[in-house]
Design a protein around this nucleic acid. Structure first.
Length: 715
DNA sequence: ATAGGGTTAG
């Protein structure tokens, strides 16, 4: 891999800014591929970009490499591991073009496609009336032909265009377009195809669009930037990214340069297919061609980085806008706020929102939805409530999704009364904000996590009465709550009704049922819940039976555990293991509990459980259930005893992290842990400086272990 | 939706 590290993938001559250049910031961030991504902040803050010489042809010659050929080296150059001398090259004192002898090739036309001017049509009223009739009539060929014959009109080019533009649904537009074609009164120009394609795009009819495009090619009708951007955006909306790229390349091959609309459409295609490196290359290449990207481009970039919660990427977008002097609009702020949330930066989302309001923009429903969601997830109750207050004081726009997001925020933070008030507002509101399945799910979540079984059950019954669908999450919340209240018969009923009403149990629901199994006090109750679980996940029930049997050997448990966990959704794996451990402990199967904790660790379900530095060893049980945390503590004590016995080096401080349970409804892991520590007479005490931590000094721990060793030996 | 590109809910 001795290739010049800064050779550019797109054959664009690379401008290396001087090291003291103010507009250039360089930072790296490791990607999952263990490579290094480079963000070069283009050096366009102070000096205007040199315009490409006017005598250069705008379009590439037909034998130009296709875009995919041009992009090929990209994956091999930019995804290769970082080389130390890259930074060397960057700090070269003089600005220089890597290859100044070759002319810079532009990738996009800086001129937008020009539209033909609108001219007034005196017959507009009659034509609109006909269009309305067509819109309202049946989709069938017969009905449409009949309507056209009923209201005869002069089928001139202008009249036909006006009608075509006024048709709403694609079957009508497509029919009318074909009708004009068969009339043979005037040549079919590009604009007729473009208008029809736009309508087809609303109906996601990519196949028909492609058919029309091919027809244009074979009839020698020019495809312009409007045609291509429509084709590309339709393919994108149909998730046919390869088709979108194929047409983009065809465009270059026919010698047509994309303008900024087509260019940002293709950027979005690459962004949505997760090709971040390609997007950045195209972006930088466009900027190097003298393009000043607009707000739409930045919202595409912002959305892309938000998708992976890439904070460096978000900073890059903000920095680029600043240095290019592009003022973000509401959409850009919305995507960036959302992205900040995904990147886990609630504070920065808040400042960004403040900046937005200060700049004179009015937040819309999407802005507020994004921010409320961020505050809810971060459990920033104060900010969430303040924002809500501000929304009402300023009468900022509310919609249905925002209402439901507010309810979810209430569930995240534990604001029961506020949620009830909102829910009532929704019930009293006009039709478009009536509580739906999402709203009820949020309420089930709120009542369920708060242990308010009766109100939760009431919600469930109300849903049945009003015909609101129950979804798997609502069902899970209610079952969890009924389980905690030991209302097993109600639980069985709710499970049965939900399944009957179309709920497909998923791994989370199974995890929830499994946790109820661990809570059951009688074998009768266990049987009832296991019967539900048997319906949803028989293999999991098999594993439970296996581990409960003392005679089952470790190897058998290991194989079965592995097989069940492999088939389980990633986010449900640890809960499964936690519950299995709890079940064992409740049946006094301590050895089995330790085996399961070992297996959970083996298969990576408890990353970061043990942490060691020179000064401090810690056990982080925050993601463990009570039974699993006890098991982990016992395991840790056993290990420490061995270390003490062998007189190996020990740190000053020992730490067990239980967390404080920031969630209002969260169970008291700390309390339970404290009593277990007491039972073991271990010298851990709740730390006053570090919330959610139990600490022990080396001296205390060593003397405690030594006092226990004789008993440990005899036991 | 009056020929083309971007943003909201477990």
């Amino acid at each position: 891999m001795a290739a010049a590290p800064l050779s550019t993938p797109l054959d664009v001559h690379f401008f290396i800014p001087p090291s003291d250049s103010k507009g250039t910031i360089f930072f790296t961030k490791p990607l999952r591929t263990n490579s290094t991504r480079k963000f070069t902040f283009s050096c366009h803050s102070s000096k205007p970009k040199p315009k490409p010489p006017p005598n250069l042809p705008e379009s590439p010659s037909p034998n130009n490499p296709s875009l995919s050929d041009q992009l090929k080296p990209l994956s091999t150059t930019t995804l290769s591991p970082a080389k130390p001398d890259q930074t060397h090259l960057l700090s070269k004192p003089k600005s220089t073009w890597v290859n100044p002898t070759r002319p810079k090739r532009s990738v996009l036309s800086l001129q937008r496609h020009k539209r033909s001017p609108y001219s007034y049509n005196p017959q507009v009223r009659e034509l609109k009336l006909l269009a309305r009739k067509l819109n309202n009539c049946d989709d069938s060929q017969e009905a449409l032909s009949l309507t056209l014959n009923e209201v005869p009109f002069e089928p001139t080019r202008e009249n036909a265009l006006l009608i075509l533009n006024s048709l709403k649904f694609w079957p009508k537009s497509y029919f009318f377009f074909n009708w004009i074609k068969t009339q043979n009164l005037f040549p079919m120009e590009t604009i007729f195809y473009n208008v029809t394609m736009k309508s087809l795009r609303f109906g996601r009819q990519f196949q028909l669009i492609e058919q029309l495009a091919n027809e244009m090619v074979s009839n020698g009708i020019e495809l312009d930037n409007i045609t291509y951007s429509t084709i590309i955006s339709c393919a994108k909306r149909c998730n046919m990214f390869n088709k979108a790229i194929e047409w983009f390349e065809r465009m270059y091959k026919t010698g047509l340069m994309p303008d900024e609309v087509t260019y940002s459409a293709i950027l979005d295609v690459y962004a949505k297919s997760g090709k971040v490196e390609e997007v950045l290359s195209l972006y930088e290449r466009g900027v190097a061609s003298g393009w000043k990207p607009d707000a739409i481009t930045f919202s595409v970039l912002g959305k892309m980085f938000g998708e992976t919660g890439d904070y460096d990427g978000i900073r890059y977008v903000l920095q680029e806008m600043r240095s290019l002097g592009v003022q973000p609009n509401v959409v850009v702020y919305n995507t960036l706020l959302e992205a900040m949330g995904k990147a886990g930066k609630p504070g920065l989302a808040r400042s960004l929102f403040d900046e937005m309001v200060e700049s004179g923009l009015t937040p819309d429903e999407k802005t507020l939805t994004a921010l409320i969601k961020v505050y809810g997830k971060a459990r920033w109750a104060k900010d969430a409530l303040e924002l809500w207050e501000r929304m009402r004081a300023n009468s900022w726009p509310m919609d249905f999704i925002l209402y439901n997001t507010l309810l979810n925020m209430c569930a995240d933070i534990g604001l029961v009364e506020e949620a009830e008030r909102l829910f009532e507002d929704m019930k009293q509101s006009s039709d478009h904000c009536k509580p739906d399945s999402y709203s009820y799910t949020a309420m089930l979540n709120i009542y369920g996590s708060g242990g308010n079984v009766d109100k939760a059950m009431y919600m469930f019954e109300e849903m049945s009465e009003l015909g609101v669908a129950v979804n798997v999450m609502g069902c899970t919340c209610l079952i969890q709550c009924l389980g905690k209240a030991r209302r097993i018969d109600d639980l069985v009923t709710v499970f049965g009704v939900s399944v009957k009403r179309g709920v497909k149990p998923d791994d989370r629901l199974c995890g929830c049922l499994l946790s109820v199994v661990s809570l059951c006090e009688t074998s009768e109750d266990v049987g009832k819940v296991v019967a539900c679980l048997q319906e949803a996940n028989p293999k999991l029930v098999g594993l439970v039976k296996l581990i409960e049997n003392k005679k089952t050997g470790f190897e058998t448990v290991k194989q079965e555990f592995k097989s069940v966990i492999r088939d389980t959704a990633v986010d449900a794996r640890r809960p499964f293991c936690n519950c299995l451990i709890d079940i064992c402990r409740n049946r006094y199967l301590y050895e089995r509990a330790h085996e399961l904790l070992y297996l959970g660790n083996l298969y990576g379900l408890y990353p970061g459980l043990h942490n060691k530095t020179v000064d401090e060893w810690s056990l982080d049980v925050r993601s463990l259930s009570i039974g699993a945390a006890h098991t982990a503590l016992e395991e840790w004590m056993g290990t420490l005893a061995k270390v003490v016995e062998r007189e190996e080096a020990l740190p000053e401080l020992f730490l067990a992290q239980t967390g404080t349970g920031t969630h209002k409804f969260s169970q008291g892991l700390a309390t339970s842990f404290a009593s277990h520590v007491k039972k073991l007479a271990a010298p851990f005490a709740q730390s006053e400086e570090r919330a959610g931590c139990f600490v022990a000094t080396r001296e205390d721990l060593v003397s405690w272990v030594q006092s226990r060793i004789p008993s440990a030996v005899t036991a």
